[in-house]
Design a protein around this nucleic acid. Structure first.
Lengths: 340, 340
DNA sequence: GTGAAAGCGCTAACAC
DNA sequence: GTGTTAGCGCTTTCAC
C-alpha cells in the first residue's frame, strides 16, 4: 500500500473528465464512448495504473480473496493441494491467503480470525488433528461466510467438502494384503477424531470382514502424534505375543518410520511383514524397499476445492453443499508380496 | 467480505456514543475513559466484532499483508521457506498472499500485478528460472514498493536478499569429492542466468582450482529444464570419451535422476561415479544409495526474509539493503566414497 | 474524554 | 455518454 500509485482520480484530472467515467472505462462498462475509453486506457497504461483492490473490495464488499488453512504448509500433500488451489484461483481472478494451524486448534482459530478480519470471501480449510469441536466454524456459517472443507473434514458442518475415497483406498489396500496371503493385519492411524483416519480404519475393517478375518483390538493403534507416533506403535505391534504379518499405515510418513523400525529389528519386508502406506509421497518411490501405497490426487483436490468454492460464491442462489470424492489408486511396490 | 459482520458503527449506536470513541477504545488509544473502553470491548466480544482490515487498510494505507512469489509451491524447499515466512509473519501481525510463477516470467509478472493490485505492503520473491531481465521489479522499486529476494536472487537490484552460502556449499562438496579420490568431476546446473546455479558452479570451479585440477568445458552442463534436464545431461556425460568419476548436481531432484540413469547403465555408485546433490530434500535420505548432499536451511530462510522485510517496512528510515547468507552443510551419505 | 467531519479509492444509483 | 453524489468501514485531525 503505497502513495506512489496513480488513482482513478489522477486519470480523471489529467483527462479532464469525471472520475466515474474513468471508472466505467476501466471496467469497460457498456455506455462509454470508445474514444474516451481508449484515452483512459492509454493513460492508465502510461502511468502504470493498477486498480486499488482494497478500495474496490471495501466498496463492492468482496475481496476476491480466498483464505486457506492447512495443518502444515511444508508437507508434500498439502503443498500440492495449495498449488492446485492457487492455480485455479488465479485463473479465476482470486488471490489466496495462506495460514497453517500446525495441528493446533488454537492456532487454527487465530488463523481464521486473521483471515476473517481480512474479509476473505470465504475459507478453504483442512482441519487440524486437534479439531474435534467445530463451533468456531459454525460461527462463520452463521455470519454467512462460505466454507469448503478438504481432506480433513467433519460431518458436523453442512458445507461442501472434497475428500479422496479414503474408505475405498484403505479397503483396496487391505484387500490386496489379504490376497497376497497376509492374515494378521494391523492398522496404525491418527487420533480418534480425525476423519481421514477413521475412514481408512473403516475401510481396513470392512476388508477384513469381507474375508472373514477377525478384527483384533490390539491390531488397531491410534497415534496422537502424526509425525513420530508410528515408531512406538510399530514397536508395540512387534512386541505382541502374536505379531502381525502386515501393517497398514494411515499415511506414508508413518509407514516410512515403520520400515525403519522393522529394519532395526531385523524383520524382513515384505516376507515377514508387509506394509502399505497412504498418500504416495514422492519419497515413497525411492525408499528401500519402495513403499506400496495408496495415491491421492492432491493437486486435483486443490482444484476441486477452489472450484466448489468459487461456484458457491459466484452463484449463491443455486448453492447446495456438495461432497466430491476423488478416486484413490493402489500403487504396488516393494513392501508387499506378489499376488499368487 | 460479508454484510453480517458488526461494524464500529453498530457498536457506537448500541452504546450511544460516537463512532470515533469506539474506534479509540478498540485500539486502546490513551485518552479514553476506562469505563467506556470496557463497555466497548464487552460489546465487541458479544457481537463477535472483527475489525474490517480492508477499511483499515484503505485508511491507513497499509495492508499488513506480504506478497510472496515462488517458482513452485509444491517443492519441498519452497514450501518450507513459505512455512517460515508464514510463521514469522503471523507472529508479527502480517498475513501472506501466495503465488507461484511456475518458472515462467510472464506468470511471475501477472502474479506481481495481482499482488500489487491487492496493495500488499511489499514482496518476497524467489525469481523464476526464466527471469533474467528484472525491469518489472525495477518499476516496483520506483513506486517505492519494498522487495526482499530470497534464494533465487539477482545482483541487478538494490534490495535485501537472503541466500544460502551457495558457493561455499558447492566448494565443500567438490572439495570432498576430490579428497575421496575423484579427479574428473562434472557439474550439472540450471539455465545460464540462474543465480544459484552460477554460484554453485563457481564454488565447483574454485574447488577444482584449489587442487590444481583442470576445468573441462565438457564437464559443465546447463539444463534449461530444472525438472527433467539432468537425465539427458547424465547420459551425455556417460557418453564422453573420458567419463567423469563424479558428478555434482545443482539440486537433489537432478541428482536423483542421475542416480537412476547411472543404475540403468550399470554404473556403480559411488565406486565408478560419486554423486553429490544440493538442498537435502527429504527424499535424499531414503533413496538407495542415500544421497550425499548440501543442506540448506529453508525454514530459516523464510524466517529471515520475513524478518528483513518487516524490519524494512516498520523502520524505513534506517533501512539499507542487506544481504543475509545462511550456512550450508555437507551431509555425507552413500553416494560418495569414504575419506581415506 | 468525546464528538463532528473529512477522506482513503472506488462503485453505483440517479440525474441530465 | 457523462457528471454528481453518497457511501463502503475505518482513522484522524480539530473542536469543545
Amino acid at each position: 500500500m503505497k502513495n506512489d500509485q496513480a488513482t482513478i482520480r489522477d486519470l480523471a484530472l489529467k483527462l479532464n473528465i469525471s472520475i466515474s467515467t474513468v471508472s466505467r472505462a476501466l471496467r469497460n462498462a457498456p455506455d462509454v464512448n470508445p474514444d474516451t475509453k481508449k484515452a483512459v486506457l492509454a493513460l492508465a497504461e502510461q502511468l502504470h495504473y493498477e486498480p486499488n483492490r482494497v478500495a474496490q473490495s471495501l466498496r463492492i464488499r468482496k475481496t476476491k480473496t480466498i483464505g486457506v488453512v492447512v495443518p502444515q504448509i511444508a508437507m508434500h500433500f498439502f503443498s500440492s493441494v495449495i498449488s492446485g488451489i492457487q492455480e485455479y484461483a488465479a485463473q479465476h481472478g482470486y488471490s489466496i491467503m495462506i495460514c497453517q494451524s500446525m495441528e493446533s486448534l488454537d492456532t487454527e482459530k487465530s488463523n481464521i480470525h486473521m483471515l476473517v478480519s481480512n474479509r476473505v470471501d470465504g475459507l478453504l480449510i483442512s482441519l487440524s488433528s486437534e479439531t474435534t469441536n467445530v463451533e468456531h466454524l459454525e460461527h462463520l456459517l452463521a455470519k454467512k461466510i462460505p466454507i469448503v472443507l478438504f481432506d480433513r473434514v467433519t460431518d458436523a458442518l453442512p458445507v461442501s467438502k472434497v475428500v479422496v475415497a479414503d474408505h475405498d483406498g484403505a479397503f483396496k489396500a487391505v484387500d490386496y494384503l489379504i490376497r497376497t496371503g497376509c492374515r494378521r493385519i494391523a492398522y496404525i492411524g491418527g487420533p480418534e477424531g480425525l476423519s481421514i483416519s477413521n475412514q481408512r480404519m473403516q475401510g481396513y475393517r470392512d476388508a477384513l470382514q469381507k474375508h472373514n478375518l477377525p478384527i483384533l483390538p490390539d491390531y488397531t493403534i491410534h497415534c496422537a502424534d502424526l509425525q513420530n507416533g508410528s515408531t512406538e506403535a510399530t514397536q508395540r505391534l512387534l512386541n505382541l505375543p502374536e505379531r502381525p504379518d502386515a501393517i497398514f499405515c494411515m499415511n506414508d510418513p508413518m509407514a516410512i518410520l515403520a520400515i525403519q523400525v522393522l529394519r532395526e529389528r531385523g524383520v524382513r519386508i515384505p516376507d515377514d511383514i508387509s506394509l502399505i502406506g497412504f498418500t504416495n509421497e514422492p519419497v515413497s518411490r525411492f525408499i528401500e524397499p519402495a513403499l506400496t501405497t495408496v495415491a491421492q490426487p492432491a493437486y486435483t483436490m486443490g482444484q476441486a476445492a477452489a472450484r466448489l468454492f468459487i461456484g458457491q460464491v459466484e452463484d449463491p442462489d443455486t448453492f447446495t453443499p456438495r461432497l466430491e470424492v476423488l478416486p484413490t489408486e493402489l500403487i504396488v511396490r516393494g513392501t508387499t508380496r506378489r499376488l499368487k
